[in-house]
């Protein structure tokens, strides 16, 4: 493996372990590492690749595969995939097997209760991070606001339909 491979491995293993609040919570750090620090992507590419993750089924964070591919072809895609999933999955595998020991601790609820607002804060940071690359003109503001209102005030709309509608609107209004 050459140095780029090691960098990919380092960046995505780190993100894997830091993903306490899930995928959205690590978006600011992912942007910082891939755009600002390593300059693998531009702001626009980061937004575009995030959008590809939204279109594909499964977790959006599978976008790491595209970042890996962008940096180092198929090898990069494979390195990004395994670096991003292996550490967290192994940790989960081991911890789930010894979880009964934690169940008794009164601190278990303290952890659950205390980390909740931090995770909301981290997710908000993730929204801001995507907004900084995706909200580029008045049309995108309106589009984001429409989707927000439909989901927040509407009744049980499948988000995938709104993502699709966003893409179609973009085709006509954001060219």
């Amino acid at each position: 493996m050459h140095s780029t491979s090691w960098n990919l491995c380092g960046v995505f293993s780190l993100l894997s372990i830091l993903a306490v609040g899930g995928g959205t919570a690590i978006l600011p750090e992912m942007h910082k590492l891939t755009v600002d620090e390593h300059a693998w992507l531009t702001d626009d590419q980061f937004r575009d690749i995030y959008s590809l993750g939204q279109i594909a089924p499964g977790p959006n964070m599978l976008m790491v595969v595209v970042i890996g591919y962008h940096v180092d072809g198929y090898l990069g895609a494979a390195i990004a995939f395994f670096s991003f999933f292996l550490p967290a999955c192994l940790l989960t595998f081991v911890t789930a097997r010894v979880w009964d020991y934690f169940r008794a601790s009164p601190w278990r609820l303290s952890v659950q209760r205390g980390l909740a607002p931090m995770v909301i804060g981290l997710m908000t940071g993730g929204v801001i991070s995507i907004a900084r690359t995706a909200i580029i003109n008045p049309t995108t503001v309106v589009l984001a606001a429409l989707v927000f209102c439909a989901l927040y005030f509407g009744k049980k709309i499948n988000p995938a339909l709104l993502i699709l509608a966003g893409g179609i609107l973009g085709l006509f209004c954001l060219r």
Binding site: Q54, T140, F148, L151, A165, G166, L169, G170, L171
Partner: peptide, 14 residues
Amino acid sequence: SVLKGVGAASVGLL
């Protein structure tokens, strides 16, 4: 342009 639209919609979703 499609990806820009999806990106903006994602902000509303998130």
